[in-house]
Every structure is written in C-alpha cells, then in structure tokens.
Nucleic acid binder design. Structure first.
Lengths: 229, 229
DNA sequence: TTCTTGTCACCTAGGTGTTAATAT
DNA sequence: ATATTAACACCTAGGTGACAAGAA
C-alpha cells in the first residue's frame, strides 16, 4: 500500500484548482509527489515510476472578469474546445530504480527530479504535457520478476496508485492568484516573494487555516502599476 | 578493470604531497575519487565501496623553517612518533549500491558523497581518520552472489583496486602552501580565492605545466599582515 | 486578447579556504 | 609551538515567481 505525503498541502491546492508550470527547460512540480510505501518484499527488486494521463479531453482557457482596462486572472476556467491530440506519453522512472523493497520502504520516496515540459521535442527525458490541459499523475510499482519468462507475468507484476488530490492543470503562467500565493507561501524556493511573517509557514501552519496571501502586495521592480479596479 | 579519473590532477597533487582536510562535520575529498569501470557482468548486482588504510605507522608533524618571528608552513614533514592506535576503520558504500553492472559501467562512478572526519564519535557514517597520519584510499567491488550460501564464496566475490597516487595526509589545516594553491586553482568551490585569470583553469591547463599559484597574494580581510621574510 | 518565452532578482542548499580564537 | 575549532565571505548549482516582450 502507498501513502501520499503532504496530503494536507495537496488538498489545499486541489481545493483551489492546482496549477503546475511547464517550461521549455522543464519545471519541477510543487508540491513534490512523495509517498511512503508499505508491504513490499524487502529482498525483492522493484522499479518505481510515474506517468500523467489526461483527466478529460478538454482544452481550457482563462475567463477575464475584469471590466475594461485591467485584466485580472481569475479562478474560473472555461472549456475552450477539444483537447490537443495526445502524444504517446512519457514515463519517469525514479532514479533509484531498480532497488530492493527494503530500500524503498525505509524512507519517503520523493519524485523531486521529475520535470514537466511543454516542449514536444524535449530530449532531456522530461514529462511532456500540453499547457491548458488537466492531468492526473499516476504512480506505478513494478516488481522485477527474476523468472526467465518474466514478460508473461507483466500483468500481475505491477500495481498502479492514483491520488485524485494531485490532479492539476498544466500552465505556462499561473492563472489563479490564490494558487500563486499558496505556492509562494509554501515553497521554500519562492521565499523571496513572501511578504508576511517568514516564520509563520509552514511551522505554524494548521491545515484548515486560511492561507496567508499578502505577498501580492510586494513589487520588486516598481513599474507603472496599473490601477487596480 | 578500473581506471582512475583525473589521474593527471591526482599526480600533480601527489607530487607535492596530497593533503585532505578533516573536520568534525565531515569534509569531502578533493580531488574526488572517481573511476571508470570495465568488464562487469551487465546483468549482475555489485556493491561498490571504499575504505582507507594507514600507509605507515607514523605520526607526522610540520617542520617550521622560518627563523625567528614568522612561521611559514613548508612542504617538509617530520616523523613525530608512532601512529595513534587505529580504530576498526569504516567503509563507505557508494550510495547507488547495489546496482547492475550495466549501470555502473555506463558512466563515471563518483564518490563525491564521501566525507572525512576526525571526530571519533561521528554518527553520520563518515570516514574517521587521524589527523597528521597518511592514508591510502582503496576501492572495492563486491559481486552480489545470488546463491543461497553466498557467504562461503565471499573471498572470490570481491576485488580490490589501489591507486597509489591517491595517497594523502589527513590534516585539520593545510601544511603545504603549494597544496593550498593547487586546491584553489583546481577546485571550483574555491574560486573565490583565486587571484589569477579565472578562465585559465582548468580549461587551458596542460598537465605538466607549472601550477598557477598567485592566489596567495589575495587577502580578503586585510589584517596586519606580518612582514614576509 | 490570450498564451508563451526568456531574463532576472532572490532564494535554498551546501562546498571552499581564511581567520581568529581556543585547545593541547 | 603546534594543532584544532567555529564563524565567515565567497563561491557552485539550481529552484522560485515577476516581468516585459514576443507569438498566435
């Protein structure tokens, strides 16, 4: 069995509609997909991998509620047509694969090397996704069968785990400001954009409490900021 | 068979008398011990590990040639008595162990996670060495025998490789300035102490050329520098 | 108008020798 | 005297969202 780590954080993002940035060079996911694994044979070899399947066959687009003059990203999505044709879909093997069950179970397994890209010609082995489409991450455990004719047992030698709270929309720029603020508040690498008490997250964070979202006020290179409203 | 990477650099250090810093928290080696491996069974599992054995049973101390007033570290070592009693001696397993021969052979194997410490009570799994003693790094390849009674074949299932040019003296502070300068010139993490053409190393470095050693002139926090000579 | 790209300041994380103070 | 320690400035390496400019 498999347990999703940081489930409370995933839930918080999922409630707002998780977005993941895709770039040409590849971007990590945040939150990172991490799991605790139970019930493996400690002495047997396993491969761990992830892939991403479309949640639906729709393409989305952003609705702009701002009246005249100023466009403000919202949390509402419009269906903008049928999905782009899906490419075969890559998989990402956990770099420690293959490894013994004991190794996988003794600590949290983290897919922090996995990167998402929108570059259809990517040759870095990153996961290729279409921007403005929704995806469901999947986690697969493959038992390395020592038998000679292991191919015959492929069907019974792997198990797939899906956590619906890890669904997200691939984007090239954040669409929902509340997602941006939650990323800034919870991702250590975005600390430079925080405006609030830097000690308040995640140390004192209680799941269920309202996320702190004052970072938007910060403006590093003060350019002619358009009148808001 | 095994080939030492960066042999030219190791030779250059060895010619001066390589020194490696040991600290309480643990310090990496520089140069890093790296090898290319040939002739493994691509499908078999191997463990890769290193250990460190005393080169002799001597303790060293620094000779101070400076006359009165100013002590200047030299490249001469004096034997200062018998070695401290050796502790059992830890080993460092390469963190990718165990892995298939194919995996080990397809790229350079780097022991850059290995750290040296002088803390006899270290509980981080680092290699414990005595300062002012000389050591010989050893590299071991262990074939993971799939047979039930594999213990019986332990003798024939491993092979040890020793590169004499990787010998070094463990120190808590550098004793030979030429070693310091060569470290500064060749270790990217010490770039801040370079004084010479920053592009000149290692790009244009020809083994056999005299190492560039002008970095000593640099003094960051200019304190009352004692008159030299 | 909407979406994408490339650059940037600002971070995390951690590897350097230097230095002054301390220990032996 | 000689050896060790801890704090420090300065790096490498690379992960953030902001922003302006470009593309569709």
């Amino acid at each position: 069995s498999v347990q999703l780590e940081m489930k409370a954080l995933w839930d918080e993002f999922n409630q707002l509609g998780t977005e993941m940035i895709v770039t040409k060079a590849g971007r990590r996911m945040f939150p990172t997909f991490q799991v605790k694994i139970f019930g493996m044979d400690p002495m047997a070899d396993y491969m761990l991998l992830m892939d991403f399947v479309p949640v639906d066959d729709k393409r989305y687009r952003q609705v702009t509620p701002g009246a005249a003059g100023y466009a403000f990203h919202s949390s509402s999505w419009l269906v903008a047509g049928k999905a782009d044709p899906a490419t075969p879909g890559r998989v990402h093997y956990h770099p420690d694969s293959p490894a013994k069950g004991a190794q996988w179970m003794k600590q949290i397994v983290s897919f922090d090397k996995l990167k998402l890209t929108n570059n259809l010609l990517d040759d870095n082995g990153h996961i290729i996704l279409n921007s403005m489409h929704r995806y469901q991450p999947r986690f697969h455990v493959v038992y390395v069968d020592p038998r000679k004719d292991s191919e015959k047992y492929a069907e019974e030698n792997f198990k797939t785990f899906v956590f619906e709270e890890t669904r997200f929309t691939a984007v090239t720029a954040y669409q929902n400001h509340r997602i941006t603020q939650l990323k800034i508040a919870s991702n250590p690498f975005a600390k430079g954009f925080r405006d609030c008490d830097p000690e308040d997250w995640p140390r004192n964070h209680r799941p269920g409490a309202l996320p702190l979202m004052s970072a938007f006020a910060r403006s590093r290179n003060p350019v002619s900021s358009p009148a808001h409203q």
